[in-house]
Design a binder for these strands. Structure first.
Lengths: 259, 259
DNA sequence: GCGGCGCCATGTCAAATGACACTGACCGCG
DNA sequence: CGCGGTCAGTGTCATTTGACATGGCGCCGC
């Protein structure tokens, strides 16, 4: 990777001039994603300003600052979180390949959340300045963004149901199913196993549980054979059973567009 | 109202032929809203198919069915909720004048949530069929929808932070501040008092608390002088104090566009 | 090999929250 | 007027969840 370095952005991450052509986009063959047609690809290619890499643990966007870039995840997994003044942290969602990162910063002044890489990550970079222009001149693009925003909204709603109505074990089962599902869609996981390093502290901060209680509840789920979640991987041996345990109704997955 | 009845939709609500011209839209002078310009107004007027009224307690859209209409709230307050199979209910958000109702149904098959009127309500009705066509031919409209979706997303994130990180009293204070704020923006409340009938059971279902605990925590807040929330009204005597108590940082309110 | 660090695990106790049963106020209705 | 329904409020007790303290284990740098 070191040989790729051509510059450094404000976060210290490696930024590279555009190298991947959209027609060779790593997302193009992903089963869960709906590749843009040739016309759209041309607009996107014109919009794209380059790529950026981040290592696990690095901050992609910081809460409270005004971002100048928009991103699409090409490879890797990220998380979006919100910090309270006294240090409490709420993880809002996880982002997988194809997700559009930073829509909020396209509209708003300061970012109300931060974004951190959970794995080494490759992002497609767009300049914020041209977003307006592009969205207004390319309705299809704008439409797809609306679609993505609606999807994200639906995911947040699910999380909200979890935090509001499910107990600790149900939340954990829900989150495991959600993550493995998202990862499978996007080619990051297969066979109900997701190799991703998530600490129990991150799980706790996502689900509104204490660290200790998260630990105990994870063990209970493991003993029950529903979810086997270790530091480096999430395994859901029986998806249907886990979904039923967490009271998740069938949510139909339609392929997502991406920018 | 009875004299206005011209037809009945599948929910039993009164539907009327279009009577309000967009240029006389009740939203046009609302301080928190950004009225469309003349060009946009023309598209919207062409898109609009009529109006609908609902009384408090009526279901506007039912969870699990495919909706055929999209709405903009003209007058009144609604709530969006999600039911689990065993009867648990999570209230996801409240909708105020200017909000676009049913974006999800523009994309997805079945609705993952229901919508219920909290007050008597007047909605602007759009046919779902033409949504695609219109969004693709009018980028500005599509752009505004993205904007609205991003806003809704931000609200859900706030709620998520509440459920995940705040204790019962903080949640209640947060919700009171949120509701009074939204209502003030949209002209429904003034002077930190919102006259809106919300039962403690609804509050509990929004905040993931039991009914009893909601009751006790409300009383504690009342004794502390932070929030006075009764069946028919929500009063926040000192907004700054309540915001601080709930650890809400300043969120800047920019006027919302509407369709 | 040693110390420090990050993470998981566990024991004990306390606090927050929920379940259940009941009361009283209010209101619309016949 | 009584009746049933809805809703706020309370008392008591159970359960869930959190706080704090501690130990173990693998990893890494020195």
């Amino acid at each position: 990777m070191a040989s790729d370095v051509r510059g450094t952005n404000d976060n210290g991450a490696r930024t590279m001039p555009e190298r991947i052509r959209c027609r060779e986009c790593p997302l193009r063959d992903c089963t869960g994603l709906l590749a843009p047609d040739e016309g759209q690809r041309a607009w996107i290619e014109a919009f794209k300003s380059g790529e950026a890499r981040f290592a696990r643990g690095e901050q992609v966007l910081r809460q409270g600052v005004r971002a100048t870039r928009l991103h699409t995840v090409l490879e890797g997994v990220l998380m979006r979180y919100r910090l309270l003044e006294d240090g409490r942290r709420q993880i809002l969602n996880f982002m997988f390949p194809g997700d559009f990162v930073g829509l909020q910063s396209a509209f708003d002044a300061d970012l109300s959340h931060g974004i951190e890489a959970m794995t080494d990550t490759l992002l497609c970079v767009f300049p914020r300045d041209r977003f307006f222009e592009l969205a207004l001149s390319h309705p299809r693009l704008s439409f797809d963004l609306t679609w993505l925003a609606a999807r994200e909204e639906a995911a947040l709603e699910e999380h909200l149901v979890s935090l509001g109505q499910r107990n600790a074990q149900e939340r954990l089962a829900y989150l495991a199913v959600y993550l493995v599902g998202r990862a499978s869609e996007t080619g990051v996981a297969r066979d109900g196993v997701l190799r991703l390093t998530v600490t129990q502290s991150q799980i706790a901060d996502m689900l509104g549980l204490s660290l200790v209680h998260t630990n105990r509840s994870l063990q209970a789920l493991r003993r029950a054979g529903l979810v086997d979640w270790t530091l480096a991987s999430i395994a859901v041996p029986d998806m249907a059973a886990a979904r039923h345990f967490a009271q998740m109704d069938g949510d139909v997955l339609s392929p997502r567009p991406y920018i």
